[in-house]
Design a protein around this nucleic acid. Sequence first.
RNA 1: GCCAGUGUGGCGAAAUGGCAGACGCACAAGACUUAAAAUCUUGGGACCUUAAACAGUCGUGCGGGUUCGAGUCCCGCCACUGGCACCA
Length: 827
Amino acid sequence: MRQWMLRITAYAEKLLADLDTIDWSDSLKEMQRNWIGRSEGAEVRFKVARVQGSGTETSNLEPETFITVFTTRPDTLFGATYMVLSPEHKLVDQIVPNQWPEGIPDVWKGKTGSGNSIPASGNSIPASGNSTPASGNSIPVSENAVPVSGNSIPASGNSTPGSGSSIPESGKSFPASGNSIPERRNSFPEPGKSIPKAGTTHFETPKAAVEAYRVFAAGKSDLERTELAKDKSGVFTGAYAINPVNGEKIPIWIADYVLASYGTGAIMAVPAHDERDWEFAKKFSLPIEQVVIPIGLKPLEISPKNFIGGAIGPLEKPFCEEGIAISSPESGWRLKDLSGERCDIKGLPTAEAKAKISAWLEEKGLGKKTINYKLRDWLFSRQRYWGEPFPIIWKKDAAGNLYHEALPESSLPLLPPTLEDYKPTAGGEPPLARAKDWLHEIPGATRETNTMPQWAGSCWYYLRYTDAKNNSAFVGKDAQNYWMGANGCKLKVEGCKLDSSMTQPVTSNLQPATPGVDLYVGGTEHAVLHLLYARFWHKVLFDLGYVSTPEPFYKLVNQGLILGEDGQKMSKSRGNVVNPDDVLVEYGADAFRLYEMFMGPLQDTKPWNTKGVEGVYRFLGRVWRLFVDENSETEFEQAETLTTKAQSHQDLLNLIKLNAAIKDVAATPAQLKTLHACIKKVTEDLDGMRFNTAISAMMVFVNDAITWETKPLAVLREFLILLQPFAPHIAEELWHKLLSAFRFPLSALAYQPWPKFDAALLVESEIEIPVQVNGKFRDTIKVAVDADHATLEAAAKASEKVQTFIAGKTIKKVIIVPKRMVNLIVG
RNA sequence: GCCAGUGUGGCGAAAUGGCAGACGCACAAGACUUAAAAUCUUGGGACCUUAAACAGUCGUGCGGGUUCGAGUCCCGCCACUGGCACCA
């Protein structure tokens, strides 16, 4: 199937680097980093050994064949005791010889059988002498395990790294073909033509083993692959490669723990220093050789004899951390004649060893530094109706070959055709192929029938919103600059006339804008798909000069999930779903909104509690009663029940009178203090998106203000401005009550400037501070705010309660933090 | 397994290294009411003492540490949540 891909991998580096420039949660950034999965390492070219005689030569091996592997630990190259190709690796067919080499263990040959058996599964391993990793003298020195040793084939240094490249075709082509092999799941090894003789337990030839294994691996579903992940499987290909640093001949295996889609689809296996390789080596009795030791061991202690199972102790598990390199040609151990082409990294810490050996490999044309990413290119085609059609047409050239062309800009946007039937065609073509007229609308051309995935639209809707009616471009330059630009000023309030009663002009609210979308609030479910795709898309547009910032969302907050009342995720099957409509009917939009903000920190997951909605609903009730006259409210309620259709709703509402305690008088200092403490807290909490504590500050204000005999108009007015973002409906309603009662010429509440708090009003002359004795809280004392040390100490000692704790003891030390506390240390 | 985050009353939660539990829910008692709802007032971490209160002891997942002082900082565990999962 021909599919469109977007080359997001080309942006991997930028997507990774620019995470440092945006204000997102650490966990979200980490998820993206992991998804991109950058790892630095080296590609190393291993020459495939050509073994003469004894029937092990391969039939179709090119004279100079190299297999390139990717490794993040080139410093462990000396410990590479075998090599693994993914079953789908392109070179497998070329390297497999006609016969098994002599003297190899049976377990290497795979296992024939029937039913669900996994090849060479754990319990069928022939006793290989050393099944316990810990056993002391079980050093699997390779002389025995690797049958054809001693043939030194000098690593050829003269071939250009690019030539004879063995890098398989990009991995993305593989999964598709893998999926298309439906037969024989779990069925390796399948009895059949590949089994030459009934009754054999192992494959007779490498070809048969490889073929059977490939079928086995390809037939595994994703689920099976993960479920069986713990149990390694694989077979020996019968071929060997030459380790370029020591000339060692190492067996080449295929195993599905090596992924075709990552790196080069081939690895050098270093069982002593990699968990997976260790597991695999243990299972198939492959040699394990330690070449890195933990930092702290003396290099002098290192020799072939006390290496594993010697003075240092046996290697009981793979050592995967960084350490000190210990093996090299100079050690004299396992050294083959390399004709002087040596790289000595003995004694070097990992980082240096990596650098040295990488440079050496590069110089010899045996490898190069490489960076790999887990991130795959983005499969961008869908075979559905619902999705944007591609503005692409297909034509044939003179020779009859298909080629594609983009539609000219003048034919954009391309709209999908109207269809009666949205199903794919009988021939398996996407639904758009049903629209024959549309398909062939352009003479001599056929339209592309794939559509774009859902993510396509979510990658740029925020740009379109800024200029939704533009029919000549996806977003106009001015709109883009205004809304998304780094220097644009986004808070522009039109139609708000200033008047003398307002304390500050509206423009004081203008702050330097966050570039891009001001604030993105969304769930973590989009962490690595939508949010990565949108960043990629935006970067492409940025590089093309269509948008002015390299990132779309500089500030992002993940709101926490709201669970059901039982603390479980809401779901229909659990029956714990809260329907917002019901809450809105019962308590109104203000209470609903307010409760969601009051529940707790925005980012936290927390359970819904309908009683909590009642709590904030009661708070709004108190706010209401702070402003209106309760008797008139009763009148309203009675009138409402008797209402006739002739009476307008507005007339009824007008029955509600303002609370008579509200007067246009100067506020007392205490009242001002209450107000300004509230302004301060709400302003700061709003900035930090701590809505829950902002609301509690307003509750504190109302609890106090409701007790005031006289309620100054100016104070209540300011309070409504604070309330407005949280409960806009009730705030606006009360605002208009104030407005009509006092006839102050102000426009809608929403256009009022945000109040500023006056720090001077919050200053206390006297404060209460705690007194501790030996660090334990004992009393509070009331002191002047600017009291000096001596005064504080005296006041503390004068406290009766403190006295009982210091009586008869000597004061050894006095710790005084002005305005905070006094601590008396007695002995 | 790896990465990230979170552990505080009966519950949701507060707390620049300085009085743990603000604010709210649930609960209890009282006021108003024929009654209920609504509203208002008071109480409210545990333990111990007390008629009640005061006072006292303990208390922020567990174990150590730093500090005059730790929910907060450091080290080591445990549990839960989310993400990734043979990525060389």
